[in-house]
Design a protein around this nucleic acid. Structure first.
Length: 614
DNA sequence: GGTCACACAGTTTTT
DNA sequence: CTGTGTGACC
């Protein structure tokens, strides 16, 4: 595109941010300020105007979904300019998929073979349990989730087992070290890497093998990182290493939207950028295109109480807007009815509204049940985001375990999974597997052929009864897995890919399938990056939100505030905040005071709803 | 080896 | 309240 129209649809701040291509660049982009737009236009600008080959551009995101969206948008921008045939796309993916790719290609230098498996969180948890057992450690004293997260955190901090050994103090840590060492041994024997290893070993590879490091540093002339406030230390280090040669590093983010500290994310990485690159150019995107001023003011009034990070002051041309509605219900059922009543009422008053213009956000998954029940009862369509993901479903993991065992008999995690289905079955399957392994190689059997044979020999499908609704659904999922397998004929490729393939959320019931226009139910975390005309935030109560576990810790309380900020800024037109005087939570009836977050909002922005709910 | 009852713990979850 | 995991028992 040489006529210069590419950037015409951008506002001045966005345009400036896009045009600054070289050197270190920090883009502080508030919620709804067109961050994705800036990133995609920047890439298109680099390719079309600066004639940078797509292969020299690296674009890192945190989710496959975000990466896919970026790719789509870049493609359509490139297509619009038909003066040149641009077929190449930059590498746009998650840190993990990038690392997996690098390690498959160059991992040999540090002893990683190209055909490694990727253990997902469940595999990791199973492996840690196995290690705890082997070491004779009491799982009551050493909670598997706690041990797992401890080791994960060490890896995120780039602390190896050996290094951990030097710094470990006290009984607990000394034992964690033992587990860490044994866990790494187990992974190695199973020829597997966990999610954290992908990052950890890529950094190690770059540090130890200068040639490989040099290759990638030279290749990626432009490095762009989205959601930089959510990087952990390993990702931070990786970004630094990748952009070392050219120093064309552009990071985008907003400290106020950092909500994953508990998983290692460190928003200080984005605050430190100016110190890391004193010559960096800084851009602020503060014009918001999503929400009304009322909503932005409410969001600001809450997050501005944080003092460990700067807050962007968003503004909008949509002045005013409807007041925020707050509602105190007697209990959670009444709260759900209020939500439903308001949705019905709004749709009746504004015929242009669809169910998909409404989302209900909550702090904990346990809160979704009451909402679901009420929605089922009234027959309104809804989508529940979250729950068990496709590749985490039991039946899928079981089938994959059979396949993994056929590739690698030493994969102890898969072995144990299958063993749980019955020792006799296991013995039969292993007998068959011994001969079948050579047959796979000899006849170069496809993933699908192997899967079908494995299913047949293991008689796994017999576990399920077609006449049972839930079992039928499991069988459907296995069918779905077969169709994925048919897309990856090479068995190794198939297994290597499933862990990082987009983790689609499937509907809980097949019946929910083709309801496109539906109310969305999800956690506040899951809502990040999305927007809806109408947002309900339910359970605005002390102990629930902010969650009881974060009230004592100032840093955790700040994160809850950011989470609240993220939730509120999802709303375009109208925000509802609800709470109950009494709530049944885990079978306990409790009385919680109204959330401090609601009280933080200037009262002239809020109207208390007093209407009777049915 | 498989089933059933009881105890127990239960934020959030990109990869 | 409900899902998971353990241990006792057939």
């Amino acid at each position: 595109m040489t006529d210069g129209t590419l950037l015409n649809s951008l506002n001045p701040a966005q345009k400036k941010a896009v045009l600054a291509t070289d050197g270190p660049i920090l883009i502080l982009a508030g919620a709804g300020s067109g961050k994705t737009r800036v990133l995609t236009y920047k890439v298109a600008y680099l390719i079309l105007e600066k004639e940078i080959p797509a292969g020299n551009i690296l674009m890192v995101t945190f989710t496959n979904k975000a990466a896919g969206e970026m790719k789509d948008r870049i493609t359509s921008l490139l297509k619009k300019s038909d003066d040149r045939h641009v077929s190449d796309l930059p590498f746009a993916g998650t840190f993990h998929s990038l690392c997996a790719r690098i390690l498959r290609r160059h991992g040999r230098a540090i002893g990683i073979t190209p055909d490694f498996l990727i253990y997902d969180s469940q595999d990791t948890k199973d492996a840690i349990k196995e290690v705890l057992e082997n070491l004779g450690l009491d799982q009551k004293r050493f909670h598997p989730p706690a041990v797992t997260s401890n080791i994960s955190q060490a890896k995120n901090e780039l602390i190896s087992a050996i290094e951990y050994q030097q710094i470990a103090r006290g009984y607990f840590q000394e034992n964690i070290v033992k587990v860490y060492i044994e866990y790494q041994k187990l992974l190695r024997e199973s020829n597997a890497l966990d999610f954290d290893d992908l990052l950890f070993f890529t950094v190690e590879l770059f540090r130890k093998d200068k040639e490989t490091a040099g290759y990638y540093q030279n290749l990626f002339k432009y490095v762009l990182v989205d959601e930089y406030q959510d990087t952990n230390h390993a990702q931070y280090e990786l970004t630094r290493l990748l952009s070392k040669r050219w120093r064309n590093i552009c990071v985008v983010g907003d400290a106020s939207q950092s909500i994953y500290a508990w998983r290692g994310a460190d928003f200080r990485n984005i605050l430190r950028f100016k110190e890391d690159f004193p010559d960096c150019k800084v851009f602020h995107l503060e014009q918001n295109y999503r929400s009304t001023q009322t909503i932005l003011s409410a969001a600001y009034s809450i997050v501005s109480r944080n003092n460990s990070h700067p807050i962007l002051k968003l503004w909008t041309e949509k002045s005013g807007g409807e007041l925020i509605t707050s509602f105190q219900a007697r209990n959670e059922q009444e709260e759900a009815l209020f939500v439903i009543g308001k949705i019905t009422e709004s749709k009746y008053k504004n015929s242009h509204l669809h169910f998909s213009d409404f989302a209900v956000l909550y702090r904990t998954n346990a809160q979704s049940r009451v909402l679901e029940e009420a929605l089922l009862h009234t027959g309104l369509p809804y989508i529940l985001v979250g729950g068990v993901r496709f590749y985490e479903r039991k039946e899928i993991k079981d089938v994959l375990s059979y396949l993994r065992l056929l590739i690698n008999p030493k994969d102890s995690i898969s072995y144990r999974r299958i063993e749980k289905l019955g020792k006799k079955k296991m013995a039969r399957f292993m007998d068959f597997a011994g001969n079948f392994r050579s047959e796979i190689k000899k006849n170069n059997l496809s993933s699908l052929e192997v899967m079908d044979k494995a299913l047949q020999e293991s008689s796994y499908l017999d576990l399920y009864d077609k006449n049972n609704e839930e079992d039928l659904y499991r069988l459907e999922n296995i069918k779905e897995l077969r169709s994925v397998a048919s897309q990856f004929p090479n068995l190794n490729n198939f297994l290597e890919n499933v862990a990082l393939v987009e983790q689609e959320y499937l509907p809980d019931r097949p019946a929910n399938d083709n309801k496109k226009d539906a109310i969305t139910l999800m956690t506040l975390h899951a809502a990040k990056g999305l927007e809806f005309r109408n947002i309900f935030m339910v359970g605005m109560e002390e102990g629930l939100f902010p969650h009881a576990r974060s009230i004592m810790e100032p840093m955790e309380l700040e994160e809850e505030r950011r989470l609240c900020y993220v939730g509120i800024t999802r709303a375009m037109d109208k925000l509802y905040l609800t709470y109950t005087s009494r709530r049944l939570y885990f079978g306990q009836r409790s009385t919680n005071p109204v959330s401090r977050f609601l009280l933080d909002i200037p009262q002239d922005l809020v109207q208390q709803s007093t209407e009777q709910v049915i």
